[in-house]
Design a protein around this nucleic acid. Structure first.
Length: 266
DNA sequence: GCGACAG
DNA sequence: ATCTTGTCGC
């Protein structure tokens, strides 16, 4: 039966994953590393930021191991979705806090590679990821992991605060920071891990932005703010909405349903 | 030791 | 992540 570990604690798996991320972390860049600017003056030779991507995954309610990854690309000036693609996958590993990248990055990476092969002209200049960047136990969340693997500037956008380096939701309220539009997330170590943003004037619950890869926090925050029609920035929101709709129609297709029936009736 | 813990 | 109705607020 159980060889080394009696309980499925994934001890060895986590050790390997940690080792791999520490290796990838060597390539992580926390500064602006791209040729564009948000809004360059006419006299400026820099190219303007136009294409912003967003990725997210949704799961099948009947089988949580079946998920649908989505990649969308928007024109940052109009917020129109100019590209969308999906990929259904089977998740072998469960969700383990701190190791989200190993569960979600494979599908997302495949979607990015497909786009670069088929329609390079629509490849995003920066990518928003549903999850954290360096606001992570080992300073290498999904946004950073995906950014390094795909070698693309990424921004981490989380809907909930990851309690890391002493950071916790309570501390944010105590300092009356709730009245500010943005609050730097400084850990006990003194490092700025991200920014809590009230993406809408009357929004009580903030979003948590952190650097993924090849971008500075200041630029990341500016890009996110420019994309906020609602609490969640459009690239991420659209990826979320569309992947959720896609997994529903997918699970309604007979050929996919067979998979469920096999498990349901032995 | 116990609890907390992105999606 | 996913299951759900109403409901509080602008």
């Amino acid at each position: 039966m159980q060889t080394e570990s009696e309980s499925e604690d994934y001890v060895e798996q986590r050790r390997q994953w940690t080792q791999e991320q520490n290796r990838l972390k060597g390539q992580l860049l926390l500064h602006d590393d791209f040729p564009w600017k948000l809004s360059p003056p006419l006299s400026d030779p820099h190219q303007p930021l136009c294409l912003v991507g967003g990725v997210d995954l949704s799961f099948c309610k009947h089988d949580l191991t079946v998920g649908c990854g989505a990649l969308v690309v928007l024109n940052i000036n109009t917020m129109n979705v100019i590209y969308e693609d999906f990929a259904v996958t089977h998740l072998r590993m469960p969700y383990i806090p701190g190791f989200l990248a190993f569960r979600e990055s494979p599908v997302l990476l495949a979607l990015l590679e497909k786009l670069s092969r088929k329609h390079v002209d629509m490849y995003p200049q920066v990518l928003m990821v549903d999850g954290n960047g360096i606001l992570h136990p080992r300073g290498f969340g999904l946004a950073s992991h995906l950014g390094v693997l795909a070698n693309i500037p990424t921004i981490g956008v989380a809907k909930n605060l990851y309690h890391v380096d002493g950071l916790c939701r309570q501390d944010l309220r105590m300092g009356h920071d709730i009245t500010d539009a943005s609050t730097p997330l400084v850990g006990n170590s003194g490092q700025v891990l991200g920014m809590a943003l009230r993406s809408h004037p009357d929004c009580t619950k903030p979003i948590f932005v952190s650097v993924g890869h090849r971008i500075s926090l200041g630029t990341a925050v500016s890009v996110v703010q420019k994309c906020c029609k609602y609490r969640i920035p459009e690239p991420v929101r659209q990826a979320d909405i569309r992947s959720r709709k896609q997994i529903k129609v997918t699970s309604a297709v007979p050929s996919i349903r067979v998979t469920f029936d096999e498990h349901a009736s032995p």
